[in-house]
Every structure is written in structure tokens, then in C-alpha cells.
Nucleic acid binder design. Structure first.
Lengths: 330, 330
DNA sequence: CTGAAAGCGCTAACAG
DNA sequence: CTGTTAGCGCTTTCAG
């Protein structure tokens, strides 16, 4: 890998001039410019992003960090795609950190990310009190949160209206005549789990159908969906419908329901939070609350790049709408 | 962010000594060691991975590149999880590049990755003649390929026996009595697409059932699954079974079949390459060839770290077994 | 318009 | 056992 020095030598100029044409910062004599360009081509010179990053925190080093809880969740995959598209268009690379809901891992990754001198970070923190992340924000790193906010600190956020989404889903269940509607929650420490529970409660209270015994708390995973759905079906007086708190829980619950040969929606109806692009190929086609995941990622990416450019811009919280996709599981 | 200099100053030693305790390279007097450790703690010092990387290509900078064609494909997500687990355990961070089957994007990402001075790369190249990647390997960067190999160059590879996997799937179809078995292929430029086609052909030729008119070539995407399946069903003499070339194609084909209210497997049977953890919740539960994707990623990660440690180690090609998961779609 | 030189944070000889 | 010093490849004053 040729360095700037070699280019300079070959072109018979100083490295400063090479740097200038590379960043077309100052004006350079056209003839020398051409000479340099020629040398660059001949040497197949590629600038080192590392040296650039080390040299100047002031200039953009073109590296973004993404910190997400669960890469296996299709929702985050779509968010990631959105971020990645924006990053690519702006010549940013992405360091992707998947902490698997594990706080220790999150901390390590946050350290690494800082240590890599990233320009900005898009994160879905473990919980809203994430002290590490708050400190990083206070330290001046541009950060935008997705899907999950942070308490007591001003930060850009992109998420959906979780409560409304849940409310519309559960209301749909109520309107369809279901009486014993259960909720399989994700990790209660995640704000969105609680927001969704609020929507669920509001819908049921309005209908006079609320029964706290029908709420199960899990850890947002496929396994917890499998397990908690089984607990629900094992009740002496099982629910006639289930509202599942996320993607993975839905898939897990489906697994259990099918294993027991229960009919959906006749034996038990189901509506899930989070749509999947193949939801209409599930058995039966799944009614679900669709979060515009790709859009969330895209917006977050745009906000982050804006903030990198202009750190003074006031924080904004962007709430996108979740939409109920009615298919045939309830 | 405190630097080594500040730590040295605070501890009243030289930066060299700080570096020594940090890397416990040379022996350091216990008392000074403690002083330094104290200073590090007080200053919340974090070493800069960037400076380290710039300084010495000889020492590990703890950054791995991952270059994959399609993050939306659950197969690659699982591969990524496997890589990530190994990386995490070895204190490596990952730069994730998703080129979306777009060769231009792949080239840009390859440039960026080199420019970031990564220690090693795990890649699933666009095609087996990927010149850019070959040059990088020749340049001495440790690389291991997953899922797709590279022609005419010695490189570590981890993949499955695609031909055998396809053969077993199609043979199962034959044994079940299907006569007109179609294949929706992914991008023919991808070696695995062709290997799978070979398995398909071999199974059908053995049974005297081969009909080239029943092969459709697409681009490995969900959309191509939707579209090519429709073409197949629109034929005057449509197939009674379909073998789909990957995950996304399967999901797309399912979409089309359901939209047309065809019954699976009565109207048309389907068996897919690539299993998904929720495959038993599909309508109907999908029979599929399961690639051990997580395992592939894990092995690739291990091989890469080995190679970084010992660049002289002879290349190895690791072929894992694909397994037919029989459920009820055929 | 161009070059010299300082320095980003760190490692690795080389002396002492 | 510890300090000095020379860079890694680049940007950025400051002079010419």
C-alpha cells in the first residue's frame, strides 16, 4: 500500500500538496495537480482512513458506530439496512456491534467504539438509564437513539408510537370479539415493552376486559415466546387471543401453538408487534403492527450525519407511525 | 479522552513504561506498575485503537472486516452471529459491509476495508473471479471466504456441500412422486447457485425427469422468488413441485403461491434451500435444506484468527454438511 | 501556489 | 527496570 510520501516523491512535490489535491482544499496549480493525480493512479494509492482519523478529530473520519441489541431480530436488520444505505451514500463505513441484550457486552462495545474514534453512533441502548451511553453523549460524541430513548438527557431519537400501535392491535382484537386477551411482553426494562403494555392496558380497560393475570413478562427472545405462550395455553382458563410484544416472541408463540395443534384464530388468535416481509406466508397470514424499520434506520442515519456536520443543532425526537396490517391470524 | 501522555505525566513516568504495563510486554517494577494503573483508573484512560493500528501493522489492531452480499438474508445474519461471537471472545470489533449483490458497492467496501487497516477479512465474494478480492489476498491480508469460493487462488473457505444438499432435497421430491420439478435458481454467477443446480440436475436425471424448461434463473432476491414462481405457475403445463435456490427465493415463492390460493403441497409442493428458525411456523411447515449458518460463521472466525496469528498455515477448505429438514411442504 | 514542520497516540528499538 | 526517540500516514498552520 503506497503512502502519501511515495506519491509526493514520484510527483516531485511535497506531501502537503498531495494532501491538498486529495481534499481539494486549497487551490493547486493545474499542472502539478495533474502530475499528482497521475502518480496516485500509477501507485494505486489509497489514503489511509486510519491515519486521517488519528490526525484530526476535527475532520470527518467517515466511520459510524451502530450498537444494536439483537441482530437476529428482523426489525433491527431492517433498521441496519436503512442506516447502511445512508452511510454508503455518504461514504461512511459502519462498525456494527450486536450486544445481544447483554449489558457487559454493550459496555465493551461502547468502549471499543470510542476507542475507534468513530464520528457518530446510532444506538438502541439496553435501557433508558444507560449511564455509559449518557456519558458518551455528554462527552460530545454525536449520537442518535433508535427504537429506545434515554431518560434525563437531550438526544436525537427515532422511534414509533409504541403505545398507539399496541392500542390499535389490541382494540382490533376486542372489536373481533375476543374476551381473554393475553400479552407476552418483552424485557420490561426496555421502554418500548412498557409502552406497548400501556397501549394493551388502555385498550382492555376501555373494554372492561383487563386481567393482569394474562400478562407474561419475558426477555424479548424467541425462546421466551415459546415458553410463555406454553404457560398461557396451560392455564386452567387460557386466553382466547394473544398479543405478542415483538417479532421474535411472535415467532416463538407460533411455534408453541402449532406444536400443540391449536387452530389460529379459532382456538387462539394472535396479533404481533412487528411485521415481517414474509408475514403473509406464515400460518396463518399474520396480523401485525408494522414498524417502518427501514425508514427508522434511514432517518436515524440522516439525523446523525446532520449532527456530525452541525453539533449545535437542537435535538429532535422523531416519532413515526406504526400501522396495523390486518391479515388472518385474528 | 485522556492519552497515554497524560497518564505518564500523572504517574510520573515515561509513556514507554505506560505502554509496557498496558501490554505487559516487559517486566515493570511493581510499585510503578501500581502507580500507572492508578493513574489510568483516575483518568479513565482508554487506549486508542486507531493510534495502535496506525503504528504497527505487525501487532494486532483488533479489527475484522466482514463483507456479505445481503444482510436481509437470514442465512447471512446467522453467519454474522457466528463470526461476531468469535470476534467478541477475541476482543475484535467488526466492520460490517453489506454490498447487496452490487459489485460497485463491493469494490468500494473492499477499498474502505483496506484503508481501515483491518487485521483480516471474512467475505462472501460476488463471484469466484472477484479480482479485487484476489489482489487483496495476494497482498497478504488474511482472508477467509464463506459460502462462496474463489477460483485459481489458495484461500481458506467454509461452506456446505451445496450439490449434495440440493440432491437430497430433489431426491426427496422424486421419491414423493412428483414428476415436474422446477428449480428457481439464484444468480447463476454465484457458485453455490450452480452447485445446487448440479444437485438438482443429477437427481432428476437419475429419475429420468429432467426438463430444462423448468429452470428459472433469478438474482437470489425475494422479488425474484415472487416473480419467477408466478412465471412457473403461469406455464401451460406448470410444475407440480418447486425447489427454491435460497431463503429469500423460498419466501417470495410462498408469497406467490399463497396469493394464488394454491394449496401446498397438493397443488404444488415446495422445498427450499436454507432453513429458517421459524420454518415450522410457515404455511405449511417448510421442508428445507438446513445449512449450519451459525457454525459456518463461527468456523470462519476461528480460521481467520488462526491465520492472523500464523499467516503461514496452509489453506484449508472446510465443507460442512447440509441437512434436509422434512416438514410438510412436500 | 507550495514546502517545511509539528503533532495526533501509540509501539519498538536502543540506550542507559 | 526505565527513558528517549523515531516514526506509522496524514492534516494543518506558518512561511516563503
Amino acid at each position: 500500500m503506497a503512502s502519501m510520501n511515495e506519491v509526493a516523491k514520484r510527483a516531485g512535490v511535497s506531501i502537503a500538496t498531495v494532501s491538498r489535491v486529495l481534499n481539494n482544499s486549497d487551490s493547486v496549480n493545474e499542472a502539478t495537480r495533474l502530475k499528482i493525480l497521475k502518480a496516485i493512479k500509477e501507485l494505486k494509492y489509497q489514503p489511509s482512513r486510519v491515519a486521517k482519523r488519528l490526525r484530526s478529530k476535527s475532520v470527518s473520519s467517515n466511520l459510524l458506530g451502530v450498537l444494536i441489541p439483537d441482530i437476529q431480530n428482523p426489525f433491527y436488520v431492517d433498521v441496519l439496512r436503512g442506516i447502511e444505505d445512508v452511510a454508503y451514500r455518504n461514504n461512511y463505513a459502519i462498525i456494527m456491534c450486536n450486544y445481544g441484550q447483554d449489558e457487559k457486552k454493550e459496555i465493551l462495545y461502547l468502549d471499543i467504539l470510542q476507542s475507534e474514534a468513530i464520528d457518530g453512533l446510532i444506538a438502541a441502548p439496553v435501557n433508558e438509564n444507560d449511564q455509559r451511553l449518557k456519558n458518551i453523549i455528554k462527552g460530545g460524541l454525536p449520537v442518535v437513539c433508535v427504537d429506545r430513548g434515554l431518560a434525563g438527557i437531550d438526544v436525537d431519537i427515532v422511534w414509533v408510537n409504541n403505545e398507539e400501535g399496541a392500542y390499535s392491535a389490541v382494540s382490533h382484537l376486542v372489536k373481533s370479539g375476543y374476551k381473554r386477551i393475553a400479552y407476552i411482553s418483552g424485557l420490561p426494562s426496555i421502554p418500548s415493552s412498557r409502552m406497548r403494555e400501556n397501549g394493551y392496558r388502555r385498550a382492555l380497560e376501555n373494554a372492561g376486559l383487563m386481567d393482569s393475570g394474562l400478562i407474561k413478562y419475558g426477555n424479548s427472545s424467541y425462546a421466551s415466546g415459546v415458553e410463555l405462550c406454553a404457560e398461557l395455553l396451560d392455564m386452567p382458563n387460557p386466553p382466547d387471543a394473544i398479543f405478542t410484544g415483538n417479532n421474535l416472541i411472535t415467532l416463538g408463540a407460533l411455534e408453541t401453538i402449532h406444536k400443540r395443534k391449536k387452530q389460529i384464530p379459532n382456538d387462539v388468535a394472535i396479533v404481533g408487534f412487528d411485521d415481517m416481509f414474509w408475514a403473509s406466508s406464515l400460518n396463518p397470514p399474520l396480523t401485525a403492527v408494522r414498524q417502518p424499520a427501514y425508514e427508522i434506520g434511514k432517518r436515524a442515519g440522516e439525523l446523525l450525519i446532520q449532527r456530525i456536520t452541525d453539533p449545535q443543532r437542537p435535538c429532535i425526537q422523531m416519532t413515526l407511525n406504526a400501522e396495523l396490517m390486518i391479515r388472518s391470524s385474528c
